[in-house]
């Protein structure tokens, strides 16, 4: 019997639409907005500063890790066991572990936190469905590419 290729469903962080990708893929072009997206999971294990961090996968900030960024978009979820400082945080679900600390404006579908975790300020939008206008504002969709990359 032929083996089915392993697929998983990811949500584009540009247009918020879902599509299927190969289980081992790292970057693809979104079939809806044609933008290039990273789909890898990511683990931060020590101190790190970044500008704009985006992935359709999940971002995990390990215990004792400290991550400072301008914006963090992880449509596969965000697990915070260390420290996260970001101006803009956007994800599907956030979990703050017992030692987790976060600061920054935050938008997510679901939010959970363990006892001992801290939120050190920020403007939160939890459980608020993104409007189509939001998705369009986030997506400057180019016309479909006329040639293969």
């Amino acid at each position: 019997m032929a083996r089915q290729p392993a697929l998983r469903t990811v949500r584009c962080y540009h247009c918020s639409k879902e599509f299927e990708v190969g289980a081992k893929a790292i970057t693809v072009s979104c079939p809806h907005c044609y933008q290039r997206v990273a789909i890898e999971d990511m683990v931060v294990r020590s101190s790190h500063s970044g500008g704009k961090v985006q992935t359709c996968g999940k971002i995990t900030i390990a215990e004792r890790a400290r991550f400072t960024a301008m914006s963090v978009q992880a449509s596969g979820g965000l697990e915070i066991n260390g420290v996260l400082n970001a101006s803009q945080i956007s994800t599907d679900r956030i979990h703050l572990g017992p030692g987790g600390r976060m600061r920054g404006d935050c938008r997510a579908r679901t939010f959970t936190m363990d006892a001992g975790a801290r939120i050190e300020g920020g403007y939160f939008e939890i459980g608020v469905q993104p409007t189509d206008a939001d998705a369009e504002a986030d997506t400057k969709a180019p016309s479909p590419p006329s040639h293969a990359a």
């Binding site: 939010f111 801290r118 050190e120 300020g121 939008e125 459980g127």
Partner: peptide, 15 residues
């Protein structure tokens, strides 16, 4: 504690 289905908009400090 934010259960599934709840919605929340506003400034937040916890700890």
């Amino acid at each position: 504690i934010v259960q599934d289905g709840a919605s929340f908009v506003g400034h937040c400090s916890v700890g």
